[in-house]
Each structure stands twice: as C-alpha cells, then as structure tokens.
Nucleic acid binder design. Sequence first.
RNA 1: GCGCUGGUAGUGUAGUUGGUAUCACGUGACCUUGCCAUGGUCACAACCCGAGUUCAAAUCUCGGCCAGCGCACCA
Length: 590
Amino acid sequence: MNEGERLTELAKRRGFYFPAADAYGGAAGFWTYGPQGAALKDNIEDAWRDRFVVQAGHQEISAPDVMPEPVFEASGHLDGFDDMIVECGECGATHRADHIVEDNTDIEEAESLPNEEVMEIIASNDIPCPSCQASLADEPVDNFNLMFETNIGPGSSSPGYLRPETAQGIFVEFPQLSEYARNQLPFGVAQIGKAYRNEISPRKSLVRVREFTQAELEHFVDPEEDEPPLSTVEDVTLPLYSGERQQADDGSVEQMTVGEAVETGVVTSDWVAYYLGIARDWYERIGIDMDRFRFRQHLPGELAHYASDCWDAEAEIDGDWIEITGFAYRGDYDLQKHAEYSGDDYTVFKQYDEPITVERPTVDPEMSYLGPEFGGDAQAVADALEQLAADDPDAFDGEEVSVDLDGESVTVPVDQTGFSVEEITENGEHITPHVVEPSFGVGRLIYTVLAHAYTEDEVDNETRTYLELPPEQAPTTVGVFPLMDRDGLGEYARQLAEGLRQAGHSVTYDDSGAIGRRYRRQDEIGTPYCLTVDYESLGDPEGDADPENLQTDTVTIRERDSTAQKRVSIDGLAETVERLVGGELTFDDL
RNA sequence: GCGCUGGUAGUGUAGUUGGUAUCACGUGACCUUGCCAUGGUCACAACCCGAGUUCAAAUCUCGGCCAGCGCACCA
C-alpha cells in the first residue's frame, strides 16, 4: 500500500473521512468528514483563523454559497469556467474545441468565438481528432461549465450558481466592507467557506473534489504606498521552486530567506513574499513536514489572466506534489470588473497629506453661437473642445481653434469657447485597491497533515501506527482510562474525564479491553496524551507502589510519540493539559 | 469524459469446470489481565446496484455507479 491508500484506509476506519452517500452508490467528488475528521477540520480552520484573521488584524465574513448570475458574469467565471468541448464520434475522446482550433490555425483566443463558428472552423480546416485522427467536421461543439447552476426562486428566469471560489463573495461586497474598514487601506477580509466545481474527473480522495472548503484572505492594499511588514518575516527560510528552477534540468528547490527572495527579485511582489513567510511558519504549526514542502512559482503560461506573480504552496505525497495554497497578486482586476458591471463605486478615497492645487483648463462653450453655426453637431463640437482643452490647452492660445469632427476639421473662435484655466484644490483621489490573495484548500491541508503525520514505529516488537499530529490540531486532546473497570477505578476515571470535559478539553473515555489496546486506539487518531487511573490514584497500598510513599490522587500521563509515562497530580490537571497542548509546557517539564 | 484494472462484514482479504462464502484484525458481552494490540468463551458483521442467461450467479453476459492509475481537464 502506498501512502495515499494507507491513509484512505485509516481515514475510513477511524472516522476521518469517507465517500459520501455510499449507500446509494455514492457520488464522485463528495466526501463526508467523520467525527475525527470534522474535529481536525475545525482545529485547522481555527488555527488559520488565529493566524490570518485574529493575529493579522483582519476581519472575517460569511457570504452565500449561491450568488446570482451577474456576479459571475463580472468575475469572468461564466465565460472562463465554460469550456468548449467537442467529442470525437470515432474514438469518443473529448477535447477542448478552442484548444484544437488554436493548435491547428492561426486563430488565438478561440474561446471568445461562438460555438457555431468554432464548429465551422473545425470543419473548414479539416481539423482531425488529436487522439485518433478521425474527422471532427460534423461533431457539435458543446459547453461544459464547471459551475453548478441552479434557479433562484420558481421558474428559470433568475439563474444562480454555486460559487466556484469564495473570493467573489468578498469582492462583490467591497463597497460595504470598505465602509466597515472606515475606508482605510490596507485592510484584509477573510472567509472560510464552501466552494463548488463540477470537475470532469475528481481524483485522489480529498485532493480534487466537487465540493470543498476554502480559507481565503483578500488583503486590499494601496499599490503606491502600502508595504508589508517584511521585517517580521525576513529571516523565515522559504523552499522556493522558481520558474527558472523548474525549467533548469536539475529542478531543485532553493532555500532562501524572505529577505533574500525579495532582494534578488525571485519573488517579485513584496506582499506575496510576506505571505509566503507567514504561511510557511503556519504550515509547520499545523504539522506539515517542511522536508516535503515547497513554494512553486507559476510558469508564465499558467498564470491566470489577472495575476502578475503567483506561487503555490505544494506538499509531497507518494511522490506527487499537491497544491495546498495559491498566493496571487490579483491587482485591481476583480474590483474593476465589479465596478464596471455593477456601476457601483469600488474605489477608496485617498486623502492627500496636503491638499494640492492644480491648474485645470476648462471650456464653457457659448452654445448660442455653436448651435446656429453647427446645428446638430453642436454638442459634438462642444465635447471635442472639452477634450482638446484637457489634452492640449496651448491650442487655445490663438484667435481660433480647430477640432476634428468625424474626420472634418472645424474652426471655432476662441472667445466663443469660454476657455479658461481654473485653479482647483484637490484633497485626494479615488483609487482602486490592489488585492493580495492567499487561498488555502482546507481539504487538501487535512489530507497533507494526515499523510505527513502518519507514522509507524515499533513498541515491544509490535508495529505501532500513530498520527504525529501537533497537539493543537489533534481531534481528541486526551484519553482517560481506568487501568481496569473495577474497584472504583472506573468511577474515579469517569469523574476525571467529566471534569476535563467541563474545562473544555476534547476527551475520550475508554474502559474496554486491555490498556495497551486503548493506547493504540488513541495513537491511531493522534491523541497526544492519555491519562490512566490506577490503584495508586486511589491510595491503595497493594501492588507495585511503594506503600511508604503513596501518591494518592495522581494519575499517569502518557505521551503519544514516545509512549513515555509520568505521574501527575489531578490538582490543576486540566490546566496542565492545556499548557501541554498550547506548547507552554513540554512533557519533559512534568 | 475516454481507456486500463478493480469492487466480498467496519478494515484488510480467500473464494472461476456456477450450488449463499475463508481467514485475520475489528466491535460488543462475560471471565482473565496491577500500564502498551494478554489469553479464553460467546456474539455481531459482507458478495456495489440493476437487467440477462440458468433449476441455481460472488462466480458467466450486458448496463450503471464507485475507486485507483493513464490520457484529457484543472478560468
């Protein structure tokens, strides 16, 4: 079994995740998180929230999963997510119609052409099926949209779509969100939520699915003035796999600090570099193996149309590199689009330190002259004069001024134009913010964390499987066991478990079978600590304990990774466990 | 979406001249067990779905669904 298979088996057996609706044959690309998986997902989301919202001083929102069509017309998903496909009647292979047209003709951007035209181009150019060379001349060109479509309300007059990314829910609400940020750049808005893509072929359990959770941050910045606090991350070492490195033969990763990456220009955007640094430490915190991790730069050909520089965080599993986060500098693309399509204001007013006075040439044409002189063209002449004043105020220096009207030059006396140069005080300007976007795939993070946490070792000549999860991420914090369920050990342990639960810990109580078996159960779900109530806890002088030195009201605490045990007092135990989980205390300190 | 391979208790598996299913782990109960999958007894639990062939289908045929891999796809 390879890593992925072992993980899938463990995930199903122990309740991390499994195919959804299996009773009805299931549906490809949909997974249910079981009790352990849902808890792990919550913990990872909480850790993300802690770092990218709370510590970063950003705000979190929750937008709808369904949005009306115009949102996706503006975002470009309606066209961009809509693939033109043509199916070969001979071999049945499906191809991107626009791609084969681009490959076989001089036409670029075939995607923007209507389907019928693409079909005609295929026929008239005799483009064959790339798989079997059969003629595609009479094959219809169809659309396949990766977005799930639905209807809002009765009938089909109001189409809606399940969002293919959470980001648009932030962009579309920018005017309101900006208001909440008191219109002060920079500010960040985060969202953790579901996104949906009707993928052609879901693969590799949680890696490519049709419904998934994204954790996205949209950091809105003033491109002219705002700088990331690079000094806080400049010494963080990044494993960078630049475009240049990818094209070189050895294809090796280069270890470089954030500071060096910015200085040498390997990462062109300071903002992206900043987030790579933040994210790298965060990945380590949630348990991703930094020896199986890299940041890969998008090659020029794979860059999205809106992005200038883009890096993916990738993790290695079974020799494959899986994208777990995309870091994009999206510029002002998204806000511009929504401004254009909605007509609303997606800018921020940026006040100057000092108001500035500018000279602005203006015209105030004498319409009672232009009207009789130019008739129906009078307004066009006035507009042309206004444009000329802005472009070339010197043209108004003489007695007459000429403007171009539909290729014809017309002349107007300057004294009829009302030309003047006004002094105007400007207090600031409207700018469209740029956006820096780290976008995390939560399911893929879970998959990676589990794969990297999966460990086997040997205890007393037996193979032991355990998940080396950081205590903070572990679905269950502590297992509580009586050594045996008799002589009051069980009652004592149940009370202990209850007390820990009331203190907010995620506790599993288990009195079934031998103690070793119970430890192994917890090992497999990554529970970092187990507490065992034994006879010494009760003050029973029988057995192993030194009767002269009985430590009543103590329990043993066992560490998952080392299987080492220590004896701790039940006084303040909830707090001790909390400090262990929080990393303020190590097991060795006990 | 195409192709290849596969689908048997919760998990991993055995099982082709067609006759209702093997083993292990697991789960539960009881006994044993004074700290790392103890031993014992008992119990629970499966042939992916549908159609066809047949007296009879886990087994043969067809279709579907699902999984893994390859191709394609991944604004």
